[in-house]
Design a protein around this nucleic acid. Structure first.
Length: 760
DNA sequence: GACCTGCTGCGGTATG
């Protein structure tokens, strides 16, 4: 980009204002980018000023930038919108000539991507000479990434994809095996059986990254490693999204200076820190997707021609198949797509407020612009009117309340007149909706990070828990702070967070089924598959090992009841949908209730009555006919949509998350968003935000398109029902997961019973 | 005989 700008340098008499913007998803990254941008500019002999603008930028620096804008501004999507929410943004940005969107693959798969699309649509109108670059990691839908970023063409400016040459690196996957298969659990997620081997690898490497799937596992692995190898004390650290930015920055710094041998982390180290390589990368448990695993592997062996090496640590036996599947995916150069969000009306509503709080917007001009974005290219005149009406009157349901009449029309422009509304809006810009967290602090005031209220509220003062690699004793909870002190107690509770659940990707699922097919037909060559042979044998003895032409259903009885287990290998979201669908369809044959369990490989239906499974298969229980209807009938989509609506309500500005330092309580947010949902549901069924909630459930929770493809594939397979005497190795992990979940629900039920006694 | 699940990311202006 600087090269391009060099050819059109800022003229002495030319317009003042920002000439170029670099958009990055992470604010912590900006300092690194500034350094490289400065280096580049120096190399090209440009007399450019470079500025950073993010939530971390001080008020003083912001004021400096306002008076004297930098030539190149490095910023986040949110901060860019804050600039667009300012009066006089046309002068500031009208001479803009270049925008680079860094890590576009990352932004595109979220609503932040929609935010970028909308900002670009505005900027293209006010800055006619604008050129746009996107930088992306390898993804399956690169052409679409380009189309989404650049939007519907407004003229004949050519577009092209430039691929880096020689990016095909050799990646070597090395699985860790226990001494013998017997030592490996059939179920589980932690993988601690292999602690000794992992520690040995860390000892021998100068620097290692150890990726775990959850924050609590990172905490556990860190503690277990220290207990196992005390001499590593002071040489290993941990890093995850709930640890304070200061501590994380320190850990990154120490790692890069070579002062740390290893960091146990979550995907917090996938992105956002500069990519100085480490010697060794270790992945514990399923990476769930090819791209993620590839990116992590790429952290090692950075020298030209060097091999990237990644150790795979299975957490249960069958997971070893994934190592073979990942190797196959690398060989075939298969990577996942990033699916862009479309028609996210909550983001559109927020954007209109942004356009309106600054200089106001002209509806016709804005409609033309919005239709050039990928996300809203299909917006109809009616939908457009609905959004405007919603913001000016509150819509049909909220007409009676002044605070929802957010816009007024004046001289042909839509504006915000009320200053309180304008301020609340500026505080609410962004599409990331988090949960309320308590701040964990020492008495001295040193801030360690955040933990969810529901975990800490279960503790009593004096209780010890592990966090940020320390043993901490809870002293008390005060407002939003949990005060702690160091504890010398060796054991402690491990916090759990309510994070997202990443399902196995469709591409990795494909490869797993392919590997299974190789095993069935004796073509398996990967070490992992050979190692698992005794387990596959047991599966064959008790049931069958399905190849790609067969779909396996197991039916058996235990003291718990009657079990039907199926194995689509399609990831847990799809299994959740298929399980509900099958349960519903069987219940049409004969009234029967089930409890449902699933993991990424399959799902189980359990009942206290015999299950008419043959009859169900004969009546095409897995068919695609009436699929949409049956899905609607089988799942509680209203309840799922109600939960999705929480984010939509926050993004569209229906609920206010509070002023800095004075957040609105989670419970309060939840109840007010539920209230809106109920009102719209009962009185305004065509409300676009309400409809969006249902669409998001279909697209992202049920993964309906993927579910349909899975059923179409199954329709081509031969269904085989087996009747094992005891649970098979395939069934076992699913049953174990259900038992664990059952325990917690019993606790919940217990609590409800107590509450009923107390209040009833 | 088998179990310590649940990622990441952002964010305050105009006026007194």
């Amino acid at each position: 980009m600087l090269d391009y700008l060099d050819r059109v340098p800022p003229g002495k008499t030319g317009p003042k204002g920002i000439q170029a913007i670099w958009i990055t998803p992470i604010r912590a990254l900006t300092r690194e980018i500034e350094l490289s941008a400065t280096k580049l500019a120096r190399g090209l002999d440009l007399k450019w000023t470079i500025g950073i603008r993010s939530g971390d930028t001080s008020a003083k620096e912001r004021e400096k930038q306002r008076v004297n804008p930098p030539h190149l501004l490095i910023t986040t999507p949110e901060s860019l919108h804050l600039l667009l929410a300012r009066k006089g943004y046309r002068e500031l940005l009208g001479s803009l000539r270049a925008i680079v969107v860094d890590e576009w693959h990352e932004l595109m798969g979220s609503k932040r991507g929609v935010q970028v699309e909308l900002a670009l649509s505005r900027l293209k109108s006010i800055a006619p000479h604008l050129r746009i670059w996107g930088i992306s990691a390898t993804i399956g839908n690169m052409q679409q990434a380009l189309d989404v970023l650049l939007g519907v063409p407004r003229d004949n400016t050519p577009r092209r994809i430039i691929r880096a040459e020689n990016i095909d690196k050799t990646v070597e996957i090395i699985s860790l095996f226990p001494a013998d298969l017997e030592r490996m659990p059939w179920a589980g997620h932690l993988g601690i059986v292999l602690l000794d081997q992992v520690t040995e690898i860390v000892r021998k490497s100068t620097s290692s990254l150890i990726f775990t799937n959850t924050r609590s596992f990172a905490e556990i692995w860190y503690q277990k490693m220290l207990a196992h190898a005390p001499e590593l004390s002071g040489q290993i650290a941990m890093h995850h999204g709930s640890i304070s930015h200061d501590i994380r920055a320190w850990v990154e710094d120490q790692l890069h200076k070579g002062k740390l041998k290893a960091v146990v982390c979550t995907s917090s180290l996938d992105l956002g820190v500069d990519f100085r390589p480490v010697e060794t990368v270790i992945q514990i448990g399923s990476p769930k997707g090819v791209a993620r695993f590839l990116q992590r592997a790429g952290r090692s062996g950075h020298q030209p021609g060097a091999v990237s090496r990644i150790y795979f640590v299975p957490t249960h036996s069958l997971e070893l198949m994934e190592a073979a599947a990942l190797r196959e995916a690398f060989r075939r150069k298969i990577v996942e797509d990033r699916v862009p969000y479309v028609r996210s009306f909550d983001v559109l509503v927020q954007n209109f407020m942004t356009w309106a709080v600054s200089d106001g917007f002209d509806p016709d001009e804005t409609l033309r612009e919005v239709r050039t974005t990928f996300s809203f290219s299909s917006i109809s005149d009616d939908e457009w009117q609905w959004v405007l009406n919603f913001l000016t009157t509150g819509g049909e349901s909220l007409r009676a309340y002044d605070e929802y009449r957010r816009l007024i029309r004046q001289d042909g422009l839509y504006r915000v007149e009320n200053r309180a509304i304008a301020m609340r809006h500026r505080l609410s810009i962004g599409t990331i909706v988090g949960d309320a967290q308590l701040h964990v602090k020492f008495l001295s005031g040193k801030y360690l990070g955040t933990i969810e209220e529901y975990f800490l509220s279960r503790l009593d003062p004096g209780d010890v828990f592990w966090f940020a690699g320390r043993n901490l004793e809870l002293i008390r909870i005060r407002e939003m702070d949990a005060l702690v002190r160091k504890s010398s107690r060796k054991s402690g509770l491990v916090p759990s967070w309510q994070g997202g659940r990443v399902p196995l990707s469709s591409q990795l699922s494909d490869m797993i089924r392919l590997k299974l097919d190789e095993v069935v037909h004796g073509r398996a060559e990967d070490d992992e598959l050979k190692f698992l042979e005794p387990l596959f044998d047991l599966q064959r003895q008790r049931s069958i090992l399905p190849d790609k032409d067969k779909f396996l259903i197991e039916y058996f009885e235990t003291s718990e009841g009657y079990h039907v287990v199926m194995y689509p290998f399609e990831g847990r979201f799809v299994h959740e949908g298929v399980a509900a669908l099958v349960a519903y369809r069987i219940a049409q044959i004969r009234p029967i209730t089930f409890s449902i369990a699933m993991n990424d490989y399959g799902f189980e239906l359990l009942s206290d009555q015999p299950i008419p499974i043959e009859e169900a298969v004969e009546t095409n229980v897995l068919g695609v006919e009436n699929l949409s209807h049956d899905i609607q009938a089988s799942i509680n989509s209203t309840e799922m949509a109600r939960r999705k609506f929480r984010d939509i309500a926050a993004i569209s500005g229906l609920v206010f998350k509070g002023y800095p330092g004075k957040p609105v309580k989670d419970r309060h947010l939840q109840s007010s968003s539920e209230l809106f949902f109920s009102v719209f549901h009962d009185y305004e069924a065509h409300n676009l935000l309400l409809r969006q909630a249902y669409e998001e459930v279909n697209d992202f929770q049920l993964e309906e398109a993927r579910l349909r493809r899975a059923l179409e594939r199954i329709a081509m397979q031969r269904i085989v029902i087996t009747y094992p005497d005891v649970p098979t190795p395939f069934a076992f992990p699913i049953i174990v997961d259900r038992l664990r979940e059952k325990l917690t629900t019993e606790k919940v039920e217990d609590r409800i019973r107590k509450m009923a006694l107390k209040y009833g």
